[in-house]
Design a protein around this nucleic acid. Structure first.
Length: 866
RNA sequence: GCCGGGAUGGCGGAAUUGGUAGACGCACGGGACUCAAAAUCCCGCGAUGGUGACAUCAUGGGGGUUCGAUUCCCCCUCCCGGCACCA
């Protein structure tokens, strides 16, 4: 055995050994329980960043742990290979997105392999391969047949200069990121998937997911946003020229009598109708069309509106109510119109205050009364007031009473609505999966027949920033109608990349199946036993995947209801963000490693090292390609090895916690591995002890040895719990560090000591092996020549070693720590109290005081209250 | 704005079910080894007061429940994630 730890050598040998034995190639086996451990596949952005290392190390630790516990483990990997960054790279470098993507995949695959993850590479999937995306197309056509896929208009960001649709990310402060032009909202046709058909099941089945974090289930439930309310019809006031009734949805029908106006979205037909004869209103609606489509922006923009001059009548009182256009009303929720009750809704209150609209209070708190006039909206429920025959009712009762009254007049009914909207999947972009449709002048929209799938995306186009190059490529779009044979045009929109990522984990079960989307192997491996990925995917990706799986189930392709049984949401790895606005108005991002901090008269400032010019500090945020703040792990791997990189990442914090990047501590992780190596080296040099189970039981250790052996077996219990239940790898590592520290202090070199050292080192190597597999692979061969670590089971604690005769109890006086007592494990409460009171230090404090109460917590503490 | 989460020494974090606040590690200081440096090993390390034993304070801020609160409840501040075309 070498005296020094050389990670590169150790890692190369270990990886070679695993590869030769194809130990991570998974197959369906009936004799073992299966464990499908899935990490979210990466976007091939160029190189790995620390978030990837964190994600995939967690997955590998759990995979290797399960493997040692006798599971048939599948850990696959693939590439979320379609998307916007490839097009941006293409624009910048003039290289086709396909080439850039394939190069990145090759490089990143090498990086993943060098980190020693136990991945079954034979199942690798890339979503940009026709073998994969043909099944997106195939299932889309099935959804079209079932009416789950359908066409309607969608609102997009339109850059009037580049004449192109922009992603939300490409709109900065309401302007196009390349042109600086003010962005307009534009309505164009697109395809939708009716996820709302599954809203109830998606909500209800969250109950079937106890292995998901509570917060993710809460977020999904809130996103689906099931609410019980009342649809209310406000009949038109014909005299004002109002062309139609307005339907609104409200969860607060108890406030109906406080309605003082009705507000509609700028895109609402009534708004457009009024604008035809109202020039200022038309202009206002035009300004509403500017700015981004992002909900966050709509919700924070200053409230603005304009009266249409039209009126509706109150459905119960027949009072005339003005109809306003308001920018805070969303066309995408409900009917695009709301009844405004300024007294009891914050947004309505702000709006009414700004435009001098009446505020009428109709709810008071159950205790006390309202201070009128209201300084702010009273949004709680309570008791109705000033509401005619509905006055004096509990909110809940009032809602029912109002609903009944409306129903009698045919002007309303109870209704359940969802916040969830159908999933728009059309993208006016090149680097994505083509939507398999053909437009024919004679036959209309014609699905591409199954035997003509896949519609293959040409891989040699280079986008130039002015829209989707497919629309300019006749070789792609020109075709003949499959029905009538006349010349026709192919759909040039591609699918949202969330489609690609909604079922890749099912394809891993059978990536070599060329005749079907999936086969029976999917029902062997799925559902995923452990899914690991960033918390940023808590809603969209996970909800779309759940929906897509249910559609596949209902199409008879798979048998499971939910795709992911257990979910571990990794915290984000954050890093500083630095940027600078170029002369053209484009924002350039700079890597934090290229930025220096300087002190000037205003305090801290940041400059780019290359040109010493200032850059703007944009706070901290997720490591990403677009913010150019990712940290490549390669530097650490090259200098210290993969095991140090893995150990450091796992030791830095619990996996679910957000982590601000710092490499302080990498050195410490490396130092620990060197100490471990040295301890094994010294032990083996002094003559290792072959330890069989019989020998292990023979020695009755005493004194220090007994304590250390107790610590050893406590460590096994704790590490097992930390890995399996708690997923707190940082505390598992800390506990093993303590054990190694304890072992290092063991002075003797007699046989019992050497035996205990052997037992301890073997256990440490096994316990750490999921986290730092390479060094453990080598150390195991030294400790147990002729055997392989990967054949070893997970260590089991010896119950007898855990038993201690005496325990330490803490003694508090009035909740403050005042002493400690050593006492027999099974001492009676009276004996414990006596020992506590007679403790020298405690006695001094309680002498002469009246004792009010003594609290004894068995095994933990005694609290004397004086 | 709405939904979800977070805040503990100089730093990352620990305290698992309301029971010893600061495990483990980093940084730092001191010492040993060395011609010297690196590496390694040993010791110290929340703040204040005290020679010391020890005492008091301290888990983002304010209040509450409890024998006892980092942990539970209420209010507030700041930070992070998501908000449907970044992935």
């Amino acid at each position: 055995m070498q005296e020094k730890y050389h990670p590169q050598e150790v890692e190369q040998l270990a990886q070679q050994s695993w590869q030769e034995k194809t130990v991570f190639k998974a197959s369906e086996q009936a004799d073992k329980p299966k464990f499908y451990c899935l990490s979210m596949f990466p976007y091939p952005s160029g190189k790995l960043h620390m978030g990837h290392v964190r994600n995939y190390t967690i997955g590998d630790v759990l995979s290797r742990y399960r493997r040692m516990n006798g599971y048939n483990v599948l850990q696959p990997m693939g590439w979320d290979a379609f998307g916007l960054p490839a097009e941006n790279a293409a624009i910048q470098r003039g290289v086709p997105p396909a080439q850039w993507t394939h190069d990145n995949i090759a490089y990143m695959r090498g990086q993943l392999q060098s980190l020693g993850f136990g991945i079954d590479w034979s199942r690798e999937v890339a979503t940009c391969h026709p073998d994969y995306y043909r099944w997106n197309q195939w299932l889309f056509l099935r959804m079209l047949e079932q009416g789950i896929a359908y066409q309607k208009t969608q609102v997009v960001n339109w850059d009037p200069v580049d004449q192109t649709v922009l992603a939300n990310e490409q709109v900065i402060d309401g302007r196009g990121w390349r042109t600086g032009a003010v962005i307009e909202k534009r309505e164009i046709p697109g395809y939708y998937l009716a996820i709302t058909r599954y809203a109830d099941e998606l909500l209800a089945d969250l109950e079937k997911l106890p292995g998901w974090p509570e917060r993710v289930r809460t977020m999904q439930a809130n996103w689906i946003g099931k609410s019980h309310g009342v649809d209310i019809i406000f009949p038109p006031d014909a005299d004002s020229g109002m062309p139609q009734a307005l339907k609104v949805f409200t969860t607060r029908a108890d406030t109906l009598m406080g309605t003082t106006y009705v507000a509609v979205a700028a895109e609402h037909p009534v708004a457009l109708h009024a604008a035809r004869t109202n020039q200022p209103l038309a202009a206002f609606i035009e300004t509403c069309k500017q700015g981004a489509t992002i909900e966050a922006e709509l919700a924070t923009q200053e409230k603005a509106g304009m009266a249409t001059g039209l009126f509706v009548t109150h459905p119960l009182t027949s009072e005339r109510l003005p109809v306003w256009v308001a920018n805070y009303v969303l066309m995408s929720y409900g009917e695009g119109a709301v009844m405004a009750v300024p007294a009891h809704d914050e947004r309505d209150f702000d709006f009414a205050s700004r435009y001098g609209l009446p505020i009428k209070a109709v709810i008071k708190p159950r205790q006390g009364s309202l201070d009128l006039p209201l300084g702010q909206a009273f949004t709680d429920d309570g008791i109705t007031i000033d509401s005619g025959r509905f006055s004096g009712l509990e909110s809940m009762v009032a809602i029912d009473a109002v609903a009944v009254a409306l129903a009698e007049k045919g002007l309303g009914e109870k209704r359940v609505r969802y916040r969830l909207r159908d999933w728009g999947i059309s993208r006016q972009r090149y680097w994505g999966c083509p939507i398999p449709l053909i437009y024919c002048d004679q036959c209309g929209t014609v699905p591409v027949p199954d035997d003509q799938l896949p519609v293959v995306l040409p891989e040699d186009l280079v986008p130039d920033g002015s829209g989707n190059p497919l629309t300019k490529t006749a070789a792609f779009y020109a075709c003949n109608c499959p029905r009538c044979g006349s010349p026709a045009r192919r759909e040039t929109d591609t699918m949202d990349t969330f489609v690609d990522s909604s079922w890749y984990f099912i394809r891993y079960a059978c990536p070599d199946q060329h005749d079907a989307m999936v086969d029976q192997r999917a029902n062997y491996w799925l559902p995923v036993d452990q899914y690991i990925g960033g918390i940023e995917h808590a809603i969209l990706h996970l909800l779309y995947s759940r929906f897509w799986s249910k559609v596949m189930r209902d199409s008879g392709l798979v048998t499971f209801d939910e795709p992911f049984s257990n979910l571990l949401t990794q915290g984000m790895v954050l890093n500083e963000i630095f940027s600078r606005k170029s002369e053209s108005g484009r924002i350039e991002y700079y890597a934090p490693a290229e930025v220096d901090v300087i002190q000037n008269e205003d305090g801290k400032a940041y400059v780019l090292r290359a040109d010493a010019e200032p850059v703007e500090f944009g706070g901290v945020g997720t490591m990403s390609k677009s913010k150019n703040n990712g940290v490549d792990p390669q530097g650490i791997v090259d200098q210290y090895g993969a095991d140090t990189a893995r150990l450091f990442m796992m030791f830095a914090s619990p996996p679910t916690q957000t982590l601000e990047w710092s490499d302080a501590g990498v050195e410490g992780a490396f130092r620990f591995l060197k100490r471990l190596w040295r301890q094994v080296y010294l032990h083996v040099q002094s003559g290792g002890v072959a330890l069989d189970d019989a020998l292990r039981q023979q020695h009755v250790f005493s004194g220090e040895l007994k304590l250390l052996r107790c610590q050893l077996h406590q460590t096994i219990v704790k590490v097992t719990d930390d890995l399996e239940r708690r997923h707190t790898f940082n505390t598992a590592i800390a506990t093993v560090m303590e054990l190694l520290n304890g072992l290092a202090k063991l002075p003797g070199n007699d046989l019992p000591s050497r035996q205990l050292a052997q037992e301890t080192l073997e256990a440490i190597v096994l316990l750490l092996s999921p986290i730092v597999p390479h060094i453990c692979h080598t150390l195991w061969r030294e400790l147990r020549p002729g055997t392989e670590l990967l054949d070893q089971p997970w260590p089991q604690a010896d119950e007898q070693a855990l038993v201690q005769d005496e325990i330490t109890l803490v003694v508090q006086v009035n909740g403050k720590l005042r002493g400690r007592i050593q006492i027999a494990r099974d001492a009676e409460p009276a004996a414990i109290e006596h020992a506590a009171m007679t403790d020298e230090h405690v006695h001094k404090i309680i002498a002469g005081q009246t004792i009010k109460k003594i609290v004894v917590v068995p095994g933990k503490l005694v609290n004397i209250v004086i």
